[in-house]
Design a protein around this nucleic acid. Structure first.
Lengths: 248, 248
DNA sequence: CACATCATCTGGTATGACCAGTTGACCACC
DNA sequence: GGTGGTCAACTGGTCATACCAGATGATGTG
């Protein structure tokens, strides 16, 4: 219905502007940024705002700051972390980059299937929580948005059961993308979200402690969204001018 | 031999101090931080330094800043990205947290095996580069540090061949850990680094475009470091007082 | 040519002021 | 009792102006 109005600070705006220029390739890796004093004149903001933004870019490993020397652009492909995924997914012109989307879905499949396997062997007791989520999914099978939330809750529970903080952190980045691009993702993951039986098969395998079965079932489920994105990516490449709604 | 002296700015120090307090649990999720003005008095630095640090914590999703309201601690397990892995690996007392290490090695196995598989099907031509690296490994098989560098180069090439930016970003975080904890990691990955034949089998499978074979070989290789860390973790748990060097 | 020196770039720190959003107490008013 | 206005006192956000500290390259000197 209503959603909060977007509000961002100056340093956020500076950060985003510079970040977009870097990931879009406008600023080449190795090149030097203007000095802080020049930057705040160009952007018409105070130096503090510029410094906050630069410090954040430094932490995201998009630039390298050197006291006394120049501030240089890094090659984000070689240095940045998964936090950048959500930013890369949407090009500066507002279009989704389906090559990035495909990458993310492939990562999701590889992670998700192994997470399910380890969950089955580490903590099968999470299955009781999974069953509650599945029951809610059945009662809300018409509401795609609700299904998406429940699907996320399902996987979050499985991740917890895998007892692996690294998986949890990687999952956070993927979930972040899902939340920011909820509308697009729910379209793409339609088949996946509606197949509640598949979710149940995963829960069964986990409950029984059958790791390999959980992995196979999870991979099978996750591969659908992956295939879908790959198909969309191909469709986008072939006929980019054929826009509009597709009955689906 | 010599390594650059550590130099960090005030905002870096503030950032690290607050970050450590958050990930160690000293500051509970949901609790409010002192206001900026109080904080800079407590830390005896100017407000700019505090703000730079807080902005970075906000970006790392360890805290949530609200204009006019309070700045609150988030649950990093639910929000942070893989960038935090390296920080979590070492506890504030300087000891390695082997539960985190185990998590990372499990992630490494899952990612690495799928990366090898996709590399074989996406771009088998990287095999020529892999062979050069393998040749160097053979000529430097006595130098563990060099082997570790070459092993990293090997995997970097495979990641590039997988043509997947998400894998690349996740790999960056893992590589970051390896670089920061080089000495420890080279001990742990001893078996893995010395098995140059296994590296060659992966390269062969990639060159032939045999994805499944590449995946199996990669998983087999990576599982060793994983098993090793798991063993160390158990050893640490069982007899924590039995320190010293182990002939190995 | 080797090397110390120094002006002048760069980023880092400090201060004090003011702007802007949030919160809660208080007070009409209906 | 509930509604909405007002205001003081927080909170974070922005700004301008100093000055400190490291890096760099030109310059002078042996």
């Amino acid at each position: 219905m209503f959603k909060p109005v977007e509000r961002k600070s100056l340093s956020d705006a500076v950060f985003e502007q510079l970040r977009d220029q870097i990931v879009s390739g406008e600023m080449e890796p190795g090149s030097a940024l203007p000095s802080e004093r020049v930057l705040c004149e160009m952007l018409d903001v105070n130096r503090g705002a510029v410094r906050e933004a630069l410090k954040r870019l430094d932490q995201a490993r998009l630039i390298s700051i050197q006291h006394g020397g120049a501030t240089r652009v890094l090659d984000f492909r070689e240095t940045a972390g998964t936090d950048l995924l959500a930013e890369l997914l949407m090009r500066s012109n507002g279009e989704v980059d389906f090559e990035v989307a495909r990458s993310m879905m492939e990562l999701r499949t590889a992670l998700g299937s192994d997470i399910a396997r380890r969950c089955a062997t580490s903590d099968p007791s999470v299955a009781v929580g999974l069953r509650q989520i599945i029951a809610q999914m059945r009662s809300l099978k018409r509401d795609v948005e609700a299904l998406q939330r429940l699907d996320m809750a399902f996987w979050q529970a499985v991740v917890l059961g895998s007892e692996n903080i690294a998986y949890q952190l990687a999952f956070n980045s993927i979930r972040d993308v899902h939340e920011r691009f909820g509308a697009v993702m729910s379209q793409i993951m339609n088949d996946e979200l509606r197949d509640i039986d598949a979710h149940e098969r995963i829960a069964n395998a986990i409950e029984a402690g059958r790791g390999e079965e959980a992995e196979i079932e999870a991979r099978d489920l996750l591969a659908r969204g992956e295939a879908r994105v790959r198909a969309v990516a191909l469709r986008m490449r072939d006929n980019q001018d054929n826009g509009g709604t597709h009955g689906n």
